[in-house]
């Protein structure tokens, strides 16, 4: 059985610092490499992620991970899963902390992501052994490990009662830096974020804000969205200009450009095939 106890020299230092909150033992899957814990960022957020949340997670987390920071999250659907994916996409490392026994994949349908984390030198970690089912109380317990493993926590989209706020509370308690990504104040998913910002969390609007905390610099040179580089078609550029402001439905785009939905459908399908835009729910957004 893969297990690291608190007496072990391989036990993550930062986690040990949290004192009596530190788990007595950690079960894990994957290859335990002490270096993976050197620079960790907890990324948590709403399960009901919006398109905005997805864009933010992909943009910021991807850049942070590619700079060499390990992304730690809770393997839940929504922001958690997107953060893991964003890290994997840029070849970064990521740790998933499970709220259930180490032998369980929860949620089960994310088994592809699970396998991918393990295949890319990532870790699956839990303080519970065997195939213990997750319970209401294991989620907040799990959050303390997520916060404890990291120098800083990044919160992307959180509602009023969001579990992500529990992670933020733990991070504060453990004297870790808390970053929050501002969202539109009209969104339900921004209420928790606004609260955090008022209480003194740092606003993160780009990867640089976070990397500075680690003393890293971004390896990315800032550039425009992927989409604009690939087209010279004036109509496509116009559509991209609209989508840079906000995600829009096909109806809204065709109204804005004064073009029938039939023709707009043709253009959007082709842009989608070219990989310039993506669709989620009924809205299009830039890749």
């Amino acid at each position: 059985m893969n297990i690291v106890t608190i007496q072990d020299k391989n036990y993550p230092k930062l986690l040990k610092q949290i004192g009596k909150d530190a788990p007595k033992q950690l079960y894990y899957k994957g290859k335990w490499n002490k270096e993976i814990f050197n620079h960790c960022l907890a990324v948590v957020g709403s399960r009901r992620m919006t398109i905005y949340g997805r864009q933010v997670a992909e943009r910021i987390v991807g850049e942070v991970a590619s700079a060499g920071v390990t992304i730690v999250s809770g393997f839940m659907y929504g922001v958690d899963a997107t953060a893991h994916q964003a890290a994997l996409k840029v070849g970064g490392r990521t740790i998933a902390v499970m709220p259930c026994g180490i032998d369980l994949i929860h949620p089960e349908y994310q088994q592809d992501l699970y396998a991918e984390i393990l295949n890319n030198q990532g870790l699956i970690v839990s303080e519970y052994e065997g195939s213990m089912q997750p319970a209401l109380w294991t989620y907040p317990r799990r959050n303390r490990i997520v916060a404890g493993l990291c120098q800083a926590a990044l919160i992307i989209e959180a509602g009023e009662q969001s579990g992500s706020l529990i992670t933020a509370e733990f991070a504060k308690k453990f004297k870790r830096k808390v970053f929050a990504v501002p969202g539109p104040i009209t969104s339900e998913n921004s209420k928790g974020i606004s609260q955090l910002l008022k209480e003194g969390a740092a606003a993160a609007t780009c990867a640089g804000d976070i990397l500075r905390e680690y003393g890293f610099s971004s390896r990315f040179t800032p550039e425009g969205p992927y989409a604009t580089q690939k087209t010279h078609n004036s109509l496509e550029i116009k559509i991209i200009e609209y989508l840079q402001r906000e995600a829009l439905s096909i109806d809204a785009i065709s109204r804005n450009l004064g073009m029938p939905a039939a023709k707009m459908g043709t253009i959007l399908s082709i842009m989608q095939l070219k990989g310039q835009i993506q669709q989620e729910g009924n809205k299009y957004y830039l890749c």
């Binding site: 096909i250 023709k263 459908g265 043709t266 399908s269 082709i270 095939l273 669709q279």
Partner: peptide, 19 residues
């Protein structure tokens, strides 16, 4: 034509009933 097929793709089965 290409434009007809591209438009048809708009009406494909999206998320409903899938993961």
């Amino acid at each position: 034509g290409v434009n007809h097929m591209a438009e048809a793709l708009q009406y494909r089965q999206k998320n409903y009933g899938q993961e």
